[in-house]
Amino acid sequence: MKQNFALHPRLAEDCITLGRFGLCRLLLMNDSHYPWFILVPEKPDLTEIYQLSTDERIRLTEESSLLAETLADLYRADKMNIAAIGNLVPQLHIHHIVRYRNDPAWPAPVWGKFDRMPYTEEKIAVIRGQIDDRFKGLLSEI
């Protein structure tokens, strides 16, 4: 863990940690309705992107773009929804949600549409393997 960084309790409760890029922790939202990943810059007390240094903003953009491109390819996305909202969880975090024209919430946002449907341990292992394969050498363990 980066010095003085602590993951917000809500993110820790709702997500599965997959690893760390250079700046961000990579999480999987534990809701199998959608492939839903979250990047959290491992810097203390951040709520907004503009609070990052210029170099960190560039790094965040690179990590987000790499994740989005990889997820779009891996999951054959019709659309990638990427958002940093933070109304309920103030800690800076960026959602990357794979969307399909036939998903349960399409075309509306996914927030609050359905009760969460947690992944099985087997499916988590499959996703972890896919992510590890795609990000070899770029994603480290926590």
Rank of each mutant, 00 (worst) to 15 (best):
A72Y: 02
C24F: 09
L7A: 14
N81R: 05
P90E: 12
N87D: 10
Q130G: 03
Q130R: 13
R134W: 02
F21C: 07
R116C: 05
Q51S: 11
G86V: 11
K79L: 14
E48L: 12
C15M: 14
I85D: 08
M80H: 09
Y50G: 03
P41D: 00
S32H: 01
D45G: 00
D78H: 10
N102A: 09
W111P: 08
N87L: 08
I127E: 05
A125S: 15
S140Q: 11
D55F: 03
I49K: 00
K123N: 14
L7Y: 12
A6T: 15
T70P: 01
A77I: 02
A6P: 05
L66N: 06
L11F: 09
I127L: 13
I38R: 02
S64D: 02
L39Y: 06
P41M: 00
I38M: 07
L139N: 04
E141Q: 09
Y34P: 04
P109W: 10
T70R: 02
R99K: 06
R99Y: 05
I82F: 05
R76V: 03
E56P: 13
W111C: 10
P9G: 13
A68V: 05
P44E: 02
V40F: 05
L46I: 13
I49M: 00
L74N: 02
D55K: 06
M1P: 15
L28S: 05
L28Q: 07
P118G: 07
Y50Q: 08
L60R: 03
W106Y: 13
H95P: 11
A68M: 11
G86C: 12
V89Y: 10
G19W: 03
M117N: 01
K123G: 01
N81Q: 12
M29Y: 11
H8L: 08
P41G: 00
